[in-house]
Design a protein around this nucleic acid. Structure first.
Lengths: 245, 245
DNA sequence: CAACTCTGTGAATCTTCAG
DNA sequence: CCTGAAGATTCACAGAGTT
């Protein structure tokens, strides 16, 4: 059976409220990090591009929305999102939320405020990253892991706690903060049983969906930006075709 | 010139209060984690051995003290420690605090409450760790990195953000939560310039001191337990002798 | 085909400058 | 003095191209 996918376009919180109870097995979320948002002072307000793209970067990827909250607002907003995700997820289902080092603590808080059981922190090690003179470079992102009540320990599934993988580059790259499928997302979707459904409330260019569909899982995604909604749709259609073949 | 070391025996907070202002260049602290201490309910109350030692472990290492606070108390207590450390550290000096995944957020909070500038999170990847059925294994510990005001960016020092190293085992192992010198502590002490002084308020078996002294840094350590105070003293004396040779 | 060179890049961070 | 925008700086590593 070919895995199916649904791509909603709209505000994440609004669309989540329309989804039925216990309709997915796992949630994988990559919210806008609002990095540098420790204080209003440090937060550069205008756009994501200015924050995440080097001045001389050759690519010309479009901007994305929703990256301008301060840390208190981020906690409240993310908590509301995760409360809805809990309702939509079946008991025993998993939650994975990406963050950078600045937002890791507040993300763990939001996960627990949202009613999830905090199960641990998974590390995404990025071997290619900028050096830092006089100290340690920021070479990792963090994935907070939670479950809707106790999770099922019967499956023969043993996942590592640290993943090492590089961001897609060149023509492979469709989104500023795109995550790699091989070595990362393809592993993470394994917390959803085959034939189950994965939800991504911030689908972006759809990498999570590609990982899900390519490995026999259904996918439900939400994306606000029209451009990325279209990109995700195209990539998912391709992935689905590859599986069917 | 042979690096010197001083080992105080006593309660960390009390001894710290007796140390002079701006007398060290870097603080590397490995406080008792109080793991499982998110809630009183989850915390196993009796001793560190029950928490950190597998039932079938062959070794017979002594217990250590101070591992029975709940999370609110841990925040307050660690903040007080780090406030004192800030006073003792010269402006521009570095702070590194170990934690497991449960305590990572509260450790980042305590660091900032203590007046340090939070600079990032360093990952200690432990490749050999217990597998976790049905999910991700806990294969990492976290090191919160701070500085006393802006840190010096002139030294030609470029450190990675993720370190991979295994816990000492067998006869090498002198403490339940001992950290490896090679591949971890030997790298971390580099945030202190050669000829400078490293402070460890929870010296344990003295691994941080061994890394410091072996690489030409002076060391000040504090340890409460008589047994570990003696172990650390012996290991440091050996390390000093090796350098002098 | 393996080994090597070369070029491009980066969820970054700091400094400078204008308002 | 405080705030925000723009420009400069950094080097380990991936990946393409070449010997």
């Amino acid at each position: 059976m070919t895995p199916t996918f649904t791509l909603h376009r709209g505000d994440s919180l609004t669309v989540l409220q329309s989804l039925p109870d216990h309709s997915v097995d796992a949630v994988i979320a990559d919210p806008p990090y609002n990095s540098g948002g420790r204080t209003g002072n440090e937060r550069r307000s205008t756009s994501a591009r200015g924050k995440y793209v080097s001045g001389d970067a050759q690519h010309d990827l479009p901007d994305f929305a929703g990256d301008n909250r301060d840390q208190r607002a981020y906690l409240v907003w993310l908590s509301l999102i995760l409360i809805e995700c809990l309702r939509i997820t079946r008991p025993g289902g998993h939650l994975l939320v990406f963050s950078d080092w600045r937002q890791a603590p507040v993300t763990a808080d939001a996960l627990q405020v949202g009613g999830w059981l905090w199960q641990g922190t998974v590390v995404w090690h990025k071997p290619v990253s900028r050096p830092m003179r006089g100290g340690f470079k920021a070479a990792a992102e963090y994935i907070q892991w939670g479950s809707n009540g106790p999770f099922d320990r019967t499956p023969e599934l043993y996942l590592p706690g640290v993943f090492s993988a590089s961001q897609p580059s060149g023509r492979q790259r469709r989104h500023i903060t795109q995550k790699p499928v091989d070595g990362l997302l393809a592993e993470l979707v394994k917390v959803c049983p085959e034939g189950g459904t994965v939800l991504d409330p911030f689908a972006g260019s759809g990498s999570t969906g590609v990982a899900a569909v390519s490995s026999g899982r259904h996918f439900v995604g939400i994306e606000l930006t029209e451009h990325y909604h279209q990109v995700a749709h195209d990539r998912l259609t391709d992935a689905q075709r590859s599986v069917a073949r």
